[in-house]
Design a protein around this nucleic acid. Structure first.
Ligand code: MN
Ligand code: MN
Ligand code: ZN
Ligand code: ZN
Lengths: 139, 139
DNA sequence: GATGCTAATGATAATCTTTTGCATTCGTGT
DNA sequence: ACACGAATGCAAAAGATTATCATTAGCATC
């Protein structure tokens, strides 16, 4: 009963899963690596292994509870699925992550996939740049 | 004198660099991981270390000779820079890689970055799906 | 509420990709 | 041909993620 979303995803309501889901829902970062989540867990004194964090995040992804992103930098970043699909714009200076939705781009993507004979399953779009703050700093 | 592009990038014309550039130019795969390049080298009996392949590919990237892509799957994939910028559509079934250019999307991206206050430095767009071949196989 | 079976967990080792340290070799200008 | 710094190969290290396996914890049942 602790969290209806876990049941919905067909996952047993275990303590690690409840805690991790809670972190993803409440942490202002919104885009977190496994390590990020693990550190929060440690901070609150929870005894959850890093391996479990990885396992649970992958299960959440499979169950449609979170999305996995591959921002530059090697590690996977996770974000809880709430609200509609969106893409990301990232600052190469400070790491800030902004989100946007552009229906024209979405539409063009579908058209391109179709023209190439593909059935599109997914797509990922990242825009990299310098945010306003960082532009000032570099001058 | 072996390859003008190396000089252009400010890199000494060493044997590993010459060979690797040649592979990137001539191999029909066009999108190759460091390991891919290394295997070709081994196949032709060259005595080049994998570490050197990684080093050289990174130098090529810095020198603008190649682009690095982060397709799903963990490892970096490299492609020689010739012709104009383009994005990629990848088959999740067989790994095929197709390329496309869409000026509308490029334009929208610039507009989005600008509106968010960013100076865009780069962007990456991957469309994932099932190619024509793979659609048939799965039925 | 106790019981039992299975799935989940934590710790650790293993894997995979990429980077580094360092002694040796090579490329280039003289 | 020489000299010197840059580049290389090898091996070890690092960083991220996954696999193994003995132990523990959900949850349906009694
Ligand atoms: Mn997001
Ligand atoms: Mn390409
Ligand atoms: Zn910034
Ligand atoms: Zn295919």
């Amino acid at each position: 009963m602790e969290n209806p979303n876990l049941k919905k995803a067909g996952l047993k309501a275990t303590l690690p899963r409840i805690k991790i889901l809670q972190i993803l829902e409440e942490n202002p970062l919104r885009h977190m690596s496994a390590e990020d989540v693990y550190k929060v867990l440690l901070g609150t004194g929870e005894d959850v292994g890093l391996a479990t964090v990885y396992r649970v995040l992958t299960q959440f992804e499979t169950g449609g509870l979170v999305s996995r992103h591959h921002f530059e930098g090697g590690q996977s970043v996770f974000e809880i699925n709430q609200g509609e699909h969106h893409d990301h714009i990232l600052c190469v200076g400070c790491g800030k992550v902004d989100e946007f939705v552009d229906e024209i781009i979405e539409q063009r993507q579908r058209a391109i996939a179709k023209k190439a004979g593909y059935v599109m399953t997914d797509h990922s779009l990242y825009i990299y740049g310098m945010c306003g703050e960082c532009q000032k700093k570099k001058m």
